[in-house]
């Protein structure tokens, strides 16, 4: 069943759906959002976390003298550091996403909406032949409308998908670790593994949201065809028989399996959906799995 099309990302009905998703996110991820979210990094917060043996270089002010008085042992107090999380959304807006862009934008909108409402820092980029900013880093509920409008105005662009270069560019621009969600079909002629490795190497929690168009999964045509690449415009003449159609189906399946295996191996979250899946169902599934939570 095809997903119902909405007129706009700023449509009140759509926003109410996003609200419902946010409430669901709150319930599922209770205590884990912004203010309550604590890193495992110990720092200069106000909440006591633990004791640790004094080591050279530790701040004398952190030594718990009362313990020393009682036990003659130098222990330093550790406090939890309270920090916000940066969510990086990388939306593939290359020409190959033309048929999937609408669904991809809805998913991006949902994830961004939840992040902004959770007071996380949100950074949204489009990826194609280069990394382009959809919206500069933002935080807070007040930014949601701006976010949705900007996202809505995003169109497919470029003449290639240079995922690796885009990942490098993201790493160069943002040193702060966060959650990186890549929303794409992952049909990158140059592969996806280099890019994902770069993101993981930068310390991000990486999550892949793969969107398929069913037309991409199987070859529907037989006979002589002049294949044109949707991104580069490259031509390839081919006579497609049942054999070639089956080979294509297998190649596509192998490609997706390779993505699945890579993500499993590297601990990267992956969800594969089609354009026919409803975004609400997809997001609910993601939240219930807790996949987006590091």
């Amino acid at each position: 069943m095809a997903a119902p099309k909405h007129k706009s990302l700023t449509d009140s009905k759509f926003i109410s759906q996003l609200d419902a998703l946010y409430l669901l996110a709150q319930r599922i991820l209770k205590g884990n959002l912004q203010a309550d979210r604590r890193t495992e990094r110990k720092g200069s917060g106000i909440d006591f976390a633990d004791y640790a043996e004094y080591q050279q270089g530790d701040d004398y002010r952190a030594i718990d003298w009362k313990v020393y008085a009682r036990n003659e042992q130098l222990l330093v107090k550790l406090f939890e550091v309270e920090e916000d999380t940066t969510v990086y959304l990388m939306l593939d807006s290359s020409p190959s996403m033309e048929s999937k862009l609408d669904a991809a934008k809805r998913l991006t909108a949902s994830l961004g909406y939840i992040a902004l409402n959770s007071l996380d820092r949100l950074v949204t980029y489009s990826i194609a032949d280069k990394l382009e900013n959809i919206m500069p880093p933002a935080r807070g509920r007040a930014k949601t409308l701006t976010f949705l409008r900007t996202l809505e105005a995003t169109a497919s662009k470029g003449n290639d998908t240079r995922f690796t270069q885009c990942c490098k560019a993201l790493q160069a621009r943002h040193r702060k670790k966060g959650i990186v969600i890549v929303i794409s079909d992952f049909l990158f002629a140059n592969g996806f593994d280099d890019g994902l490795r770069i993101l993981q190497g930068a310390g991000h929690d990486v999550y892949c949201l793969q969107i398929h168009d069913k037309a991409d999964l199987e070859c529907q045509w037989l006979g002589d065809a002049d294949l044109i690449c949707s991104e580069t415009g490259t031509h390839q003449k081919v006579t497609i028989t049942e054999s070639e159609a089956a080979a294509y189906k297998k190649a596509m399946s192998d490609w997706n399996d390779s993505l699945k295996n890579y993500c499993r191996r590297k601990g990267i979250g992956l969800t594969s959906i089609t354009t026919e899946d409803h975004f609400e169902v997809v997001i609910q599934g993601l939240l219930r799995k807790g996949g987006l939570v590091a």
């Binding site: 049909l187 002629a189 168009d213 991409d216 002589d224 065809a225 002049d226 294949l227 044109i228 690449c229």
Partner: peptide, 9 residues
């Protein structure tokens, strides 16, 4: 041959 646009050339 018929022209066919593909995302996975």
């Amino acid at each position: 041959p018929r022209k066919r646009v593909t995302n996975a050339l």
